[in-house]
Amino acid sequence: MPATDLNEQITELRTLGDDFEAFHLRLAALSFQPGADAHEQISPLLLESQQLTARTLQQLTALTHGPYTQLPGSRYGLESLSAVLAGTALASADLACALSDNPYEGTNFAGSPPTVMLNRQAASAQLVAQSALSIVGTLNAQSMYHSPEIRAVYARVRQLAHLANDAADHLIDAVDILDHTVARLPVELGDGFLAVLTEHDARREAGRRFTLAASLTALGASDALATAELFIVERRNRGFVPEYQPPGLTTAQSTTLRAVARGEVAITHDKPYLRREDIRVSISTIRALENRGLVMREDCPDDWFRDERVHLTAAGRRDLAASFARPRPAALTTRRPAPPLPAPAAGRSR
């Protein structure tokens, strides 16, 4: 390491001290509003504190490896400079945390307001609950033996109705929290406790309720598919074969229809995206099902990462249901018929 010029180091330390004093004055006068203003005010100070940290570290390194350590009292000086380095690093960390915690209140973001998305999701959950109750009514109107499998179907459909209804209630609560906060009205947080929330706290409370709603309906599509298959298989086993017999599905088409029914297929840049890694779906299979009118695409306005969601059409639901427990046709064979056995030799006559 090159020799350290103590006079040069003294000059640099004095300049560094003046810069620290100016930084302290700007930090003490810091004032901002949450949102973009906070980002604009804090960011320059964060960059300046990081530069001061780097310069302090350079001075500490130069003095530690130079003739300064031979002077009386140098240890105290190095320890003091180390404390300044630690304090500057902590200031940088505090400023970074302030940026991270900035709620961006009052900032106008592109896209739909949260309440629009939450209302849309609540309406969908209510529709699922109503459809489940309608299915129960349809089952009640049928004359059939209530086997253990049929009783399980009833239980699953009723459970789906209750879960979807509870999810809708949580989503409506989230909308009320956000609307009340905008109007500066108190929000009930449980046990009769009322409080006027900040926008940041309101979004956090609404997010908690959205998470609850998502957890209640996370398995809804998969369970609905399994329940439909359980019902149809049980009815087939008792001799009730659906009258409608659609054209057969290939293995890839059947796998894709099941994945779509579970809500697992989306499209991004015209490429399929699946939530599961154990199955594969090709865009050619999706297009073939679209040509048959079995699936359709729908834009995803609330999903930044997916362009379109794939749904079953009414014909797709009908064809998929008809394929449950459907006997597979016998596989064609290309083997040659076995040659006839040779005729037994005629016995000798005596």
Score class of each variant (00 low, 15 high):
Asp5Gly: 05
Glu8Lys: 11
Glu12His: 03
Arg14Pro: 06
Thr15Gly: 07
Thr15Asp: 13
Gln33Pro: 01
Pro34Met: 07
Ala36Val: 12
Asp37Arg: 03
Asp37Ser: 08
Gln41Gly: 06
Leu47Glu: 11
Leu47Ser: 11
Glu48Asn: 07
Gln51Cys: 05
Leu52Ala: 00
Thr53Pro: 01
Leu60Lys: 15
Leu63Thr: 06
Pro67Tyr: 00
Tyr68Pro: 03
Thr69Ser: 13
Tyr76Glu: 14
Gly77Tyr: 00
Glu79Lys: 01
Ser80Val: 11
Ala91Phe: 04
Ala91Leu: 15
Ser92Gln: 13
Ala93Trp: 01
Ala93Phe: 01
Ala93His: 03
Ser100Thr: 15
Asp101Phe: 08
Asn102Arg: 08
Glu105Cys: 14
Gly111Pro: 06
Pro114Asp: 15
Asn119Gly: 14
Ser134Cys: 02
Ser134Glu: 08
Ile135Phe: 09
Val136Asn: 08
Gly137Ser: 02
Thr138Met: 11
Leu139Tyr: 00
Pro148Asn: 07
Glu149Gln: 07
Ile150Lys: 07
Val153Thr: 00
Ala155Asn: 06
Ala155Tyr: 05
Gln159Ile: 02
Ala161Gln: 04
Ala161Asn: 04
His162Pro: 00
Leu163Glu: 14
Ala164Lys: 10
Ala164Arg: 11
Asn165Ile: 01
Ala167Pro: 03
Asp169Ser: 05
Asp169Trp: 03
Asp173Met: 08
Val175Met: 06
His180Ile: 02
Val182Gly: 08
Ala183Ser: 10
Val187Gln: 06
Leu189Ile: 11
Phe193Ala: 10
His200Leu: 00
Asp201Gln: 14
Gly207Val: 09
Arg208Met: 13
Phe210Leu: 14
Thr211Met: 15
Ala214Leu: 12
Ser215Pro: 02
Ala218Thr: 04
Gly220Lys: 01
Ser222Cys: 00
Thr227Ser: 04
Val233Tyr: 04
Val233His: 08
Val233Gln: 11
Arg235His: 01
Arg236Thr: 04
Tyr244Asn: 00
Pro247Gln: 07
Ser254Glu: 10
Thr256Trp: 04
Leu257Cys: 02
Glu264Arg: 08
Val265Phe: 09
Thr268Met: 05
Tyr273Gly: 00
Ile283Asn: 10
Arg292Lys: 13
Leu294Arg: 00
Leu294Gly: 01
Asp299Ile: 11
Cys300Gln: 14
Glu308Cys: 05
Glu308Asp: 15
Glu308Asn: 10
Val310Met: 09
His311Leu: 14
Leu312Arg: 03
Arg317Trp: 05
Arg318Tyr: 00
Asp319Tyr: 01
Ser323Phe: 02
Pro327Tyr: 05
Ala330Thr: 12
Arg335Ile: 05
Ala343Phe: 03
Ala346Gly: 02
Arg348Lys: 06
Ser349Glu: 10
Ser349Met: 06
